[in-house]
């Protein structure tokens, strides 16, 4: 549906992986994969278990280092950029298993997303005390708006451990949005969510995308992906085997053989 209403494939690539390769000893987890995400798109990364999706995702987010190849963001190489340098250029991510700070409240967790915008270090904070306090108030208000967006403003003072998993995922997304990202990188966001929660998540991501956030998703849930993505990249055994619109990918024979066919067969049996 999105593919029809918006102009896909016209924007310049925001994120580009060129010949990305990752070896673990003798095992080639990701083999010479190239793909790009254009500004405004929702791109999905799918593939059967062990296809190298998570490894590729870790390369893009900077958790793992490439063995060969390069990654560009907005035309600049980010191949060696440290993890903590990524939020400030507009890259934001969520984790496969929700990764929140258990010792903090919901609001404090979302506030962590504003970290790159706040004064760095004690001296700088104290020297610009009025500015620091004003900034703290400003981001707290914004954090509350984000919590409202995910429907959790009432739970702002709750500890993370007391929330059900689905709510924790929403906190993580609110926190990722606090970075005010140009691209949102989501690692299996629907994992562990029930049907309703997954549908809500999809609707929420669509709203964010319409507000101009580019999205790259790794996900197992095929139905979720087909409804959401403009472009889909399919991996199998570390190699890119297909790329295109959901409908194209769905009818691609290689993909059916590697993934959909096998899955469809299981579902029917």
């Amino acid at each position: 549906m999105n593919a029809v209403t918006r102009n896909i494939g016209e924007g310049a690539p925001l994120l580009e992986v060129r010949n990305g390769t990752k070896r673990f000893g003798g095992l080639v987890a990701v083999n010479d994969v190239s793909f790009s995400v254009r500004g405004g798109e929702v791109v999905g990364l799918i593939g059967p278990n062990g296809a190298g999706k998570s490894t590729l995702f870790n390369l893009v987010t900077g958790v793992a280092q490439l063995s060969a190849g390069e990654i560009f963001f907005d035309g600049k190489s980010i191949t060696g950029l440290p993890l903590h340098g990524r939020p400030s250029i507009g890259m934001s991510r969520t984790f496969q298993i929700v990764r929140l700070f258990p010792g903090m409240t919901v609001l404090q967790n979302v506030l962590m997303g504003f970290h790159p915008q706040l004064p760095d270090g004690l001296l700088r904070t104290l020297l610009g005390l009025r500015h620091s306090l004003r900034e703290e108030r400003r981001v707290t208000e914004k954090a509350m708006e984000l919590l409202e967006f995910v429907g959790m403003e009432d739970l702002a003072d709750e500890k993370i451990g007391e929330l059900p998993y689905g709510k924790q995922r929403l906190v993580e997304i609110a926190r990722a949005m606090a970075i005010e990202p140009r691209i949102l990188l989501l690692d299996e966001p629907a994992a562990g969510l029930n049907g309703t929660e997954t549908a809500n998540l999809g609707a929420m991501l669509r709203v964010l995308n319409e507000r101009g956030v580019t999205v790259l998703i790794v996900e197992h849930d095929i139905d979720f992906m087909m409804g959401l993505c403009d472009q889909i990249v399919v991996l199998d055994h570390g190699v890119k085997i297909a790329e295109g619109r959901p409908s194209e990918v769905q009818s691609n024979e290689k993909v059916i053989e590697a993934y959909l066919g096998r899955r469809g067969g299981n579902a029917e049996n």
Partner: peptide, 26 residues
């Protein structure tokens, strides 16, 4: 304040803190 939040983030999850822009070593 935000300094304490970043410190708690380092305590709770270093990689998580790092991926939110906290320079953990610093």
């Amino acid at each position: 304040g935000h300094l304490g939040r970043a410190m708690q983030a380092v305590r709770d999850d270093e990689t998580g803190a790092e991926s939110l822009g906290v320079n953990v070593t610093a």
